[in-house]
Amino acid sequence: MNPMERVEAGDIRQDRPRILPGDVVRVHVRVKETSIKEEGRGKTKETERERVQVFEGIVIGLRGAGARATLTVRKVSFGEGVERIFPLHAPTVEKVEVIKHARVRRAKLYYLRERKGRAGRMKEKRVQA
């Protein structure tokens, strides 16, 4: 193991599943919320709480190696395309679930950005573990 791998080894989460482009995943992210409540006479009260948000979509690309790996997840929310990039090994990413696999022929599925509706559907692939 070289020194760089040694440093990163401690940060790599072993509980991450094998993710491939075209997979439909559910990413559980911890988010901090601050709500500001008015208490009259210009007084406000801030309360901070943490909750887990789930982002579900298609993996359109994987990037980087080791502890620096990221995944780009795309979904269409109320007709608007939304993409989020998650650091795979970030402690704020609680869990990544793989729901479906699809047969794809590219490493980066950026062409899905131009597709709408049924044109963006993909053939499901049976798990080959």
């Binding site: 070289n2 020194p3 760089m4 440093v7 990163e8 940060d11 080791g66 502890a67 620096r68 650091p87 090994h89 970030a90 402690p91």
Partner: peptide, 8 residues
């Protein structure tokens, strides 16, 4: 110097 990375 070995190189750069990121830690959490």
């Amino acid at each position: 110097k070995v190189g750069m990375t990121q830690i959490y």
